[in-house]
Design a protein around this nucleic acid. Structure first.
Lengths: 115, 115
DNA sequence: CAGTTCTATAACCAGATGGTTTATATCGTC
DNA sequence: GACGATATAAACCATCTGGTTATAGAACTG
């Protein structure tokens, strides 16, 4: 997976408002105003959060008259989870068995990116 | 788990440099300069990244003479993974069976936080 | 067509982030 | 005690983030 998408996904998840939005969307589609209702913040603020979620591919949007219903897209969540799975051995069992882990990690490890 | 810790954990993971550092630490303890070597950035920049990881509880540090060896702490990774697990049903199987999910999500969903 | 509702955009602001360079502290060695 | 190596801290800067208010667009309703 492209690192940039992982970046965007983890960044999107690093905000409690956005996690709450995802939680709400797990119960079904919702419009922007429906999503904004529980929060003590303006509607444009929620629209911005939705854009962040959209950029990460976590939310897609439809069209229903003047409403733009939001739907949860879980594929990036799976990618994030897959990344985390590589570290499962660290809190499980014997703190050993990191054999298969290394090969997987090296692919991103030696990048030398500047940012 | 406290939302702030989840915030810090996901935010820490949203940077490829920091993920690479964690990958390196999965192979064992390392000093700051060892960690900085693969990257095209100054050593203080890496120290800053380490501070972010430390704040998220993902890295702990020891003392070995003038070296401050870093060690991976995976517990926050488990917390992040646990959060993601709640959405597993979304990419698996039938896109149904979200029953048990709701109760779990409601705890964070209705916060109404401002930031 | 006028008004209302839903959403997006623009302009602005404070604070965080990610990097830099320079300086300072800590520790072992000679 | 001076030097070299390791790491932190400080000051600075550009950009991003998360919020605001105000405005504009898009689509239904009377």
């Amino acid at each position: 997976m492209s690192p940039d998408l992982l970046d965007a996904t983890f960044a999107a998840l690093a905000d409690p408002t956005r996690r709450a939005i995802l939680a709400r969307l797990a119960t079904g589609e919702a419009s922007v105003t429906e999503l904004a209702a529980p929060f003590a913040m303006s509607q444009p603020a929620v629209s911005k959060h939705l854009k962040v979620l959209e950029r990460a591919g976590l939310v897609s949007r439809g069209r229903d008259a003047q409403r733009r219903p939001c739907r949860l897209e879980a594929r990036p969540l799976k990618a994030a989870l897959d990344w985390l799975e590589d570290y499962r051995d660290y809190w499980a069992e014997s703190y050993q068995r990191l054999d298969g882990l290394l090969a997987e990690l090296q692919s991103e490890g030696g990048e030398g990116r500047t940012r």
